Amino acid sequence: MDIKLELVAVPVTDIDRAKAFYERIGFHADHDITVSEEIRFVQLTPPGSACSIAIGKGLTRMTPGSLDNMQVVVADIEEAFADLKGRGIEVTEIEDMPWGSFVYFSDPDGNGWAVQQTTPRARQDPEETD
């Protein structure tokens, strides 16, 4: 039996501001549906990902900004760092750990994200970095 993670709710205060932020970092807006006065569903998907996020109204009881350490994976952390900076995102410097290289950022509500290159830069084959 396969079990696939396909959607994670991200609690936000201002749906339109959050949607614009996630689109700015490259997420694709798949759906934006107002079901009723109590429910608005916005689904956004990172490029190349099988899992999306959902922001909106009436989707979760989590407090906006309470989601910590959502993680996405990239092939090149230096490229991801430069791309996020180029999009005007406040991002940490690259941190190298034994299990990968990381940068971190938060959305406008403070929900925390980690971007990981699974092969630490220090362990890459020198020919791969040319």
Rank of each mutant, 00 (worst) to 15 (best):
D107M: 06
A82V: 02
M70I: 15
A9C: 14
Q116I: 10
Q43T: 13
N69C: 11
G110M: 08
M97I: 09
N111G: 05
S66A: 14
M62L: 15
P108R: 03
K4V: 14
G56S: 07
L5Y: 07
E37G: 11
F21M: 02
A122M: 12
W113L: 05
G100D: 03
K57T: 12
S66M: 07
I15V: 11
E23H: 08
T119M: 13
A80L: 00
F41A: 07
E79W: 11
T60P: 04
F102C: 03
F27S: 06
R121S: 10
A20W: 10
V74L: 04
C51G: 07
Y104V: 09
A82H: 10
P11Y: 05
T13G: 15
L44H: 03
L84A: 00
F81K: 14
E90M: 07
F102A: 04
M70A: 14
I33V: 15
Q43I: 13
A18D: 09
G26V: 03
R17A: 12
L67K: 08
T119S: 10
V35H: 11
P120M: 04
I77C: 04
V91W: 00
D68N: 15
M1D: 11
I89G: 02
F21N: 00
G48K: 01
S66K: 03
I3T: 13
D30W: 00
E95G: 10
G56E: 07
E79A: 15
V8H: 09
V10H: 02
K4P: 09
E37D: 15
V35N: 08
G48Y: 03
G48Q: 07
S49L: 02
L44K: 02
A80C: 04
I55L: 06
Q124S: 07
E93A: 13
G26P: 01
D2N: 15
E95C: 08
A80S: 08
E93Q: 12
V35S: 09
A18V: 02
M1R: 12
D125N: 15
D32W: 04
V8C: 10
T13M: 13
Y22P: 01
T63Y: 12
V35I: 14
K57H: 15
V42H: 02
T118I: 12
H28M: 12
V103K: 04
G26T: 00
R17H: 10
I94S: 03
V103C: 01
G26E: 07
F81W: 15
W99K: 04
I39T: 13
M97V: 10
I53L: 05
T129K: 15
L44Y: 04
F27I: 06
L84P: 00
D130F: 14
D30A: 05
H31S: 09
V74E: 06
